[in-house]
Design a protein around this nucleic acid. Structure first.
Length: 158
DNA sequence: GCCAACGTTGGC
DNA sequence: GCCAACGTTGGC
């Protein structure tokens, strides 16, 4: 069973276009337990991901990605030269996990956050819930399809 | 730049 | 276990 997610990335750091250029990436640097648990325990190969650009004007969903490697230790956590270094994480006892993503396709038209807010069909999405800051969120199937269609795509385009 | 909301840390 | 202080996220 394929699950659906939304993952936030700052386009200044790693935009969707770069994922397309590079072909895949490991989602390192997540240092939040809830997000870690989802990557470690719940995200499976083939799961589909809405790729969201945060800290951008306007913030928006840019594309669709797919999980191509399931949760494994985030090696940047024990790399003392990394900005994501966590002295409490070691190769023997890793504290942080990541998944790998590959690109599926860019939306034909990006979907701004305000458009999600304005669409009553999206009213239950975590993305627009007050105070919601999680950088990885589960997305219901129907919400995923709604965003896809707002972005000018349908399932058969994936 | 501001600030609301939330998460983490650490003293007690 | 409580909670104040602090740090981060991320929209505006």
């Amino acid at each position: 069973m394929v699950n659906h997610w939304l993952m936030k990335s700052e386009p200044d750091v790693y935009p969707y276009e770069q994922l397309e250029t590079e072909g895949s990436t490991h989602w390192d640097g997540v240092r939040n337990y809830q997000a870690r648990n989802m990557m470690r325990d719940d995200m499976k190969i083939g799961d589909l991901v809405l790729y969201y650009h945060s800290n951008f004007k306007p913030p928006h969903v840019a594309g669709v990605a797919r999980v191509c490697k399931e949760g494994y230790p985030d090696h940047t956590s024990w790399d003392s030269s990394s900005k994501y270094h966590d002295p409490k994480s070691t190769p023997e006892n890793p504290r942080w996990f990541m998944v790998d993503l590959e690109p599926v396709c860019a939306l034909k038209t990006t979907v701004p956050l305000q458009a999600v807010r304005d669409n009553p069909a999206c009213e239950n999405m975590l993305l627009i819930r007050r105070g919601q800051r999680l950088s990885i969120q589960p997305v219901e199937l129907q919400d995923f399809d709604t965003i896809l269609s707002m972005g000018g795509l349908s399932r058969s385009d994936l």
